[in-house]
């Protein structure tokens, strides 16, 4: 069931749009902010609020990269694997990250701290290779720098 806070936040945003349905991605984002991911139950809850079927909600949810339909760790690492980072040998940095966390792309660490997701170009190509941890950018990555960054999140 959606919390009062989630419901309130979703309803507050609705005024922007002439149709309730336009709120679906935004509603999913709000629920995800509170819960970390979108479970089947959350899909049904959003469907009920929007007056749509769960299938309709899921077809939207599953088409966006940043709506997570599986649980993620406490922190999400978006690792850029696009061309500008790849030229700067992001592969080697990614291999170090994966080894260090023992979690590959799409996987979560055993302690639930990190989920590693490959990402499209993060738009910071002059600092390649780059990654984001939650809402923070980290650029000019090296294996040593990765080690230091990973210490900072609990």
């Amino acid at each position: 069931m959606l919390s009062d806070k989630e419901r309130e936040e979703i309803e507050a945003e609705m005024a922007r749009y002439p149709h309730k349905r336009a709120m679906v991605p935004e509603a999913l984002r709000i629920v995800q902010t509170h819960r970390g991911w979108i479970s089947d139950e959350s899909v049904r809850d959003v469907a009920e609020l929007m007056g749509m079927s769960a299938e309709e909600i899921d077809t939207i949810a599953s088409s966006y990269n940043m709506i997570f339909r599986r649980p993620v760790g406490r922190h999400v690492i978006l690792f850029c694997d696009n061309v500008s980072c790849w030229i700067m040998r992001s592969d080697a940095v990614r291999d170090h990250l994966v080894k260090r966390l023992a979690a590959g792309p799409g996987e979560t660490t055993k302690d639930g701290r990190y989920t590693v997701l490959p990402s499209a170009c993060l738009g910071d190509c002059h600092h390649a290779p780059v990654m984001m941890v939650d809402d923070e950018m980290h650029g000019n990555l090296t294996p040593e720098k990765i080690d230091r960054i990973l210490e900072r999140y609990t």
Partner: peptide
């Protein structure tokens, strides 16, 4: 929605 690989101007 700047997302073209190699593009970082609108940011």
């Amino acid at each position: 929605d700047e997302m073209e690989p190699g593009t970082f101007k609108d940011r």
